[in-house]
Design a binder for these strands. Sequence first.
DNA 1: TCATTAAAGTTAT
DNA 2: ATAACTTTAATGA
Length: 198
Amino acid sequence: MFIKEELLHSIGAAEQNYRPGDYIFREGGTPQFYFQLVNGDIKLNNYNSAGKEFIQSILTYKNAIGEYMLYTENKYPMNAVALTNCTIIKLCGKSLLHYLDQNPSHYLDLCRSLSKHLYRKFVLTQKISCHSAVERLKEVLEFMKQEQENKAPFTYEVPMTRQQLASLTGLCVETTIRAIKKMERENLLRIANRKILY
DNA sequence: TCATTAAAGTTAT
DNA sequence: ATAACTTTAATGA
């Protein structure tokens, strides 16, 4: 979901800056605001009881953050954490709902956004379950690349660290690294100064 | 096959 | 400098 920034401002939104590691919201918190990334990257994550991190997804500029949580009484099921310096537009959820009521055509965008998230979540969950490390990584890389424009092999620079990749696939870093090296040997991907090219 | 632990090398701030 | 990230190796479930 993306709403024009001028429009957001005109109905009372404010911008806020975040530093890497800052929380935008926390698991268990009550959704009160509509958040939209102006620039920077954030991650949605959870921690299991052993303290291991699971990244649900990584969002970049022009994306709303957890906006689909504004329409129920549910609490946030995950944290939103800034990965880089971020500027985020923040609008009171009530104001957004009010605006949408006046402008019902925007509900379609919301619907699309919701569908996209559902689809992503579903596919990703399915891809990383019941496979070997190499297969999980391969599926995830394939999935991320497929969302990009460029199609040529070894041109997609994976915008994630090994650790983030590990947290996304539920593997440990070391296994992730070995699997990636193995994939390099098998010519499934290339590595150029530590960046993964898929 | 993969997680865990430990240790060391590399890069970014 | 110091923290964050990457890599290798040994061990065990």
